[in-house]
């Protein structure tokens, strides 16, 4: 029994007890943030002590401190990869794919026939492993970010389409009738009533797609990329057993994913302030 293992168990039991204690306090607002933060911190500490205590080879599972050091050490590489994969690949594909899907949704919303044909089809395609198309797109559009953008477009298109069409469809009939009595034109109804009331659904789609876009861009790089990019770095550093770098990349991906998601939620709160779920 060495000192680190003892520390491991002490941290475990202390963290456990504190969290149970804290969760018994009712209606304290700051706890909503404090408890999960503490939980995450305790897990990190336990990870650190376990790796040190059991003498786990840092090649297999690096301790968090090593990952943090590597992260601080290679900020420039991480930034290059971040721009290559997330800004050029994922973000451009995300904007193109989601934009095209919303426009398509508006277009097919006019035709009931198309809607009935495309919706089941879209639902079906949403469940398919589209990531598998990555090698084909790499072949068509080359190794650089264009192919990543293309795969992201295809991945986000159908979930986004299904959500937008559903949103446009579920407009309250009495409101639509009201617009009619105002003698509103199609575009007026679209922009003043239907699109705003479809926003909760559109944002739901945007949130689902944000993760898909990151996954698509990273996985597509496993099939070939220039010598930069997060997927490239992950697969090549894994080959060299430099797992601290891999964890650093994963940390970047996680951070970017959370920030992006948070940003979308923030915009959603601003735009759909009228929705019951945002009113207390």
């Amino acid at each position: 029994m060495n000192i680190f293992l003892v520390l491991f168990f002490i941290v475990w039991i202390l963290g456990w007890l504190i969290n149970i204690r804290l969760s018994l306090i009712k209606n304290a607002k700051f706890l909503r943030f404090f408890i999960p933060t503490l939980f995450g911190f305790v897990i990190l500490l336990m990870w650190e002590f376990l790796v040190l205590g059991l003498n786990i080879n840092p090649v297999l599972l690096p301790p968090p401190t090593a990952i943090a050091l590597k992260f601080a050490d290679s900020l420039d590489i991480l930034w290059i990869d971040f721009v290559q994969t997330l800004i050029k690949g994922a973000l451009s594909g995300y904007i193109l794919g989601c934009g095209a899907a919303i426009l398509t949704a508006i277009a097919i919303d006019k035709f009931n026939f198309l809607k009935r044909g495309l919706l089941p089809f879209g639902n079906f395609v949403s469940a398919l492993p589209i990531v598998g198309m990555a090698p084909i797109f790499v072949m068509w559009f080359g190794f650089d970010w264009e192919s990543k953008c293309a795969i992201v477009v295809v991945m986000v298109f159908f979930p986004m389409l299904v959500n937008s069409v559903q949103g446009l469809e579920l407009v309250d009939h009495s409101r639509q009738d009201l617009m009619k009595t105002y003698n509103a034109s199609y575009t007026q109804t679209l922009f003043k009533l239907r699109l705003p009331s479809a926003l909760p659904f559109i944002f739901n789609g945007l949130k689902i797609c944000s993760t898909l876009a990151l996954i698509g861009a990273i996985v597509a790089e496993f099939f070939g990329s220039p010598i930069k990019g997060m997927g490239f770095r992950i697969s090549s550093e894994v080959g060299r057993f430099a797992l601290d770098m891999v964890w650093a990349e994963i940390f970047v991906a996680a951070l970017a994913g959370c920030l992006f998601y948070g940003l979308i939620s923030l915009i959603e709160k601003q735009l759909t302030f009228w929705h019951p779920s945002n009113q207390k």
């Binding site: 990273i218 997060m230 992950i234 994913g257 959370c258």
Partner: peptide, 9 residues
């Protein structure tokens, strides 16, 4: 919200 698949390799 995290691209978990990145950990796969």
């Amino acid at each position: 919200t995290v691209p978990i698949l990145a950990i796969a390799p």
